[in-house]
Design a protein around this nucleic acid. Structure first.
Lengths: 349, 349
DNA sequence: AGCGTTTTAGCAAGCGCTTTCTATATAGGG
DNA sequence: CCCTATATAGAAAGCGCTTGCTAAAACGCT
């Protein structure tokens, strides 16, 4: 029915072992032999049986990429950088890996299940992206799973995610705390003293770190935070819109709104504009991430640029063993403050 | 080292065959036996060896989803609907399928390579999303590959993609032509006679179909199209911005700009606004797709809603054999005109 | 020419599961 | 109480590949 290695071997007048070796290219085969084999492969339109190969070799060419929300460009950019680096199609020589992205939708169960599925597939590596979920039980389960994976020889790298100590995973963490602090200090430097903050969902590490940075900046400048100044929402535009309305209702004297990310910031801009407020003359707005649309916004968004594509590419290379892991298995990647039009000096009031 | 089926069998005092059967649940096993086995599985923390299983069963639980651009919400929404339906983690009983998305980046080679990789993995099904590439040679290669997949028992479904006749693939096509026509007719009904059109990349079927619809509407109303009124770009915001500037430079008397999709339309809005033109008082703008951000835009976008999530879910069910394929293996899904604020009556002039 | 090396290729033993076929209990009917 | 259905479990033969080991051929020395 389907053509197998043996068929190719017969046609090329060699043993199956030889065919396997030319296909894997990890063993010397005479040029003339190789050519004959390749010709047979081509003529028979042979496609290697992945499962059989993975079984015999005790490892597959599958690499999994876990993302929280596939429809969010934050993850899209990282995933596509990782995928490009991992090779797969269009990759470098021998790069026939299947890089696949799995969408957890931010659900703890799905996160875990995907990890199990990948483990079952004997994935060669897995990259986990984005903030983790702050739930002790879930984190323990994740860590146990990750440890099991690394022990079984699967390389696990965390990209834009906090380190998982003692699991064997390599972490490329974004310095959300530092970025958040720098951003808020910029606003304070501009003269703002009354700053609203729209945080992400409470259970995500990213949310907490960015908020901590913001508060550290306030504290460093002796600004006492009013509890009314912080609201939690989701990481999307609509949530930013609603949260901003709420914020301005609670305290109309705010002169700046710092958003958990750029989408939220855009929602904030829309809400302010709909309230008849000008940006940045009446209220300044700042975002986080510097996604591609942020510079196009009117006014363009002051934000913290996270090197998503670079970090993704690096994570991909580490996952492939093509780049050395950072010392201690942990690296913190800083964001870069992008000063643009959405934040200015506060209104006189 | 790693625990195998045999270990579980030994622990549960049954044969490996029995363990396999309780795991697959496709053969009667006494309740007491099943329980014993499940207990052993749990105690040993056993994870099935996917490749071995796939080899023996001659099929895997992998399902591939091909997308053109993972960072584009258009694909993100479809992919996430497909993935949800296919089950995988969090799916229905027995739904332990691994639904993975593969990002082709719009490249023909990668498209083909991913298909081969999926074929190699003996994927249970594959879903191809989004417009196809209009290149006879590439399409022939794709069709051949798809035929090979369906012949090997892999279900192939096309979601938002033109049918591939005689390949055994099932198509859920969006009626881009009809949607494009309806949209432009709406604008014409509003009184517009001078309409610019920002098309997508020339080589995509989606681009051609939408443009054909637009032109059909013009023709139906006896409007002769000026060659200056059409420019081609990419499917992103920046491209829309630039194209709009070009369009207005070519013919400042245009009263409406129809964009290939919503991102492009948003870019168009920004360009018009930056040119000092009001929307829709001076120039009307229309998009396509109705992505979530379109209703949030100011003014909200008049556009054609494509049922991305519904179509994705349906494609997923068909791929899983859980829903019957449409008659003839082809279904055309209509979009719905969303009349909103970005398009109004043309300015007097 | 003889011998040790180095290349190159084949043999065959699995990898860990599924599944057909067969065997053994158990139950039901006369 | 025996005989035939029926339910349940096991034996064993692969699935198609990889790879350690071995063998043969080719090469370079002395």
């Amino acid at each position: 029915m389907t053509v197998t290695l043996a068929d190719v071997a017969a046609r090329a007048q060699v043993s199956p072992a030889t065919v396997s070796r030319v296909l894997n290219g990890n063993y010397p085969v005479a040029a003339s032999t190789r050519e004959r084999v390749l010709k047979a492969v081509d003529e028979l339109d042979y496609v290697l049986n992945g499962p059989a190969s993975a079984l015999a070799a005790a490892t597959s060419d599958l690499v999994g990429i876990l993302v929280n929300d596939i429809a969010d460009p934050f993850f899209g950019i990282m995933a596509s950088a990782i995928q490009a680096e991992i090779g797969g199609p269009g990759g470098r020589a021998g790069g026939e890996r299947l890089a696949v992205v799995c969408n957890t939708g931010g659900s703890p169960e799905r996160e875990l299940t995907y990890l199990t599925l990948l483990q079952r597939q004997r994935a060669a590596a897995v990259v986990l992206t984005g903030g983790a979920i702050e739930d002790a039980e879930h984190q323990a389960a994740m860590d146990a799973k990750v440890r099991k994976l690394t022990e079984a020889g699967t390389r696990v790298v965390l990209c834009g995610r906090p380190p998982a100590p003692d699991t064997g995973a390599i972490a490329l963490t974004f310095d959300n705390r530092g970025g958040g602090q720098e951003l808020t200090e910029h606003l304070i430097g501009l003269g703002h003293r009354r700053l609203g903050y729209i945080a992400g969902p409470e259970e995500r590490t990213t949310t907490r770190h960015r908020l901590e940075g913001h508060r550290a900046a306030l504290a460093a400048h002796g600004i006492e935070e009013d509890p009314r100044w912080t609201v939690h929402g989701r990481y999307d535009r609509r949530s930013g819109y609603e949260a901003t309305l709420e914020l301005m209702r609670r305290d109309p004297s705010l002169t700046a709104v710092v958003a958990a990310n750029d989408s939220v910031a855009l929602g904030a801009c829309a809400a302010l504009r709909d309230s008849g407020l000008r940006i940045p003359e009446d209220v300044s707005v700042a975002g986080f991430d510097d996604l591609p649309f942020s510079i196009d916004a009117v006014p363009s968004l002051t934000t913290v640029r996270l090197p998503l594509a670079d970090a993704g590419a690096r994570a991909g290379r580490i996952a492939m063993g093509r780049e050395e892991a950072p010392p201690g298995g942990i690296a913190s990647v800083r964001g870069e403050l992008m000063v643009r039009g959405s934040a200015g000096t506060p209104r006189a009031s």
